[in-house]
Write a protein that binds this DNA or RNA. Sequence first.
DNA 1: TTAAAAAGTTAGACTATTCTAACAAATTAA
DNA 2: TTAATTTGTTAGAATAGTCTAACTTTTTAA
Lengths: 216, 216
Amino acid sequence: MDSLTEENYIKSIYALSLATGEVFVSELAKKLNIKQPSVNSMMKRLATKKVVAYAPYKGIRLTEKGKKEALSIIRRHRLAELFLVKVMELGWEEVHDIAEQLEHVDSKRFYSRMDEMLNFPKFDPHGEPIPDSNGKIYTQKRTALSDLVEGLTATIAAVGEDEKSFLDHLNAKGLQIGDTVTLKKRELFDGSVTLQHKSKKEILLTHQVAERIWVE
Amino acid sequence: MDSLTEENYIKSIYALSLATGEVFVSELAKKLNIKQPSVNSMMKRLATKKVVAYAPYKGIRLTEKGKKEALSIIRRHRLAELFLVKVMELGWEEVHDIAEQLEHVDSKRFYSRMDEMLNFPKFDPHGEPIPDSNGKIYTQKRTALSDLVEGLTATIAAVGEDEKSFLDHLNAKGLQIGDTVTLKKRELFDGSVTLQHKSKKEILLTHQVAERIWVE
DNA sequence: TTAAAAAGTTAGACTATTCTAACAAATTAA
DNA sequence: TTAATTTGTTAGAATAGTCTAACTTTTTAA
């Protein structure tokens, strides 16, 4: 069994390694808000536990065992987020911090009940895939709001960003998951889009924001 | 803020002190499965934090601050248990261990939503009162199954025992919260009772068991 | 291609939590 | 009321996780 701290390291290593496969001590230290020597000694520990492959001055890689554990933690996090939004009706911008704690709860039953209650979901409220209990991930094609054809109407399905400031921004604009919007106009100049919202209001989003919103 | 460990100490001190008001190092050590010197040094720590009043060779008492914290933890635990049973439909015998973990989640919103969803309950599935967010406890008169008049029918409302072995025992007997039973016979000799269960089966319970089941 | 910058490592220290061994105080029982 | 038992305390050590200070390697850039 891993400690809560170890789980957080594993999760971060997985997240950082998605792109490159290898993670550096400095990256991990920054992500976890921890100094490099602390990361260094934790890597030695995780290496003896066969969770990471680690050679001095080389990068950090999760072993198969480590990946499995990472996927299990991510599954718990994303199930928890979806549960908090769908069942407990909390705002999508406030569930991240709670899920961060719930993901460490040690109880298969707790998570399998969530899974059942949510009807075995494949994606969390941010549009991220939820690994199944074997660690398998289903991927899908997602359309960003910034790619929607002018004049078309779509439903906001998820957002691709966990940052509170981003979620607060959407809230302030009056956008919610499930809202139906029509793309009135896309500016060629800067890629910003004007939406017609169900509330009758027109909403202007920059490209930077629109590309992080997924629609169906 | 208290650490998870400190919260567990505070909760146990509160539980043990309910009867006598004072708790001894040895009791606490046994309850927490920890050696006496460890308890001793934690008491010193909690004393500097003004959570307990502690004088060497005297007992341990929670301060007002400590009581407040204990009630807050107990509230979270009991809300979580009720939530797990009522909303997530987990068995009453399996929720204790999960609630033990959920009680440490730091999020007012999480608990206030549970409270709302459960319609501001006053008692948990074991019949224990749930303190409100100010730490206030509502008490009620409870009738034990062992005190029910022969021939009367009642509904199982709660049980006064958290032990897994006890809850497993009831499960094995086929008894669930909400079941309606009729007291057919009480043996004067040993106080054991024979019940007529809705399932048509007759169930025999010892006095020791029947006095820990509350009915309405 | 060498010198500055960035990244990584070691050594040593600190806090939280726990333990064992040894001793001290309080309680109980003969 | 003293001796045995129970309870409580101190001292010292261990582990997990983190830090700062002081290097060492690698990388980057002049």
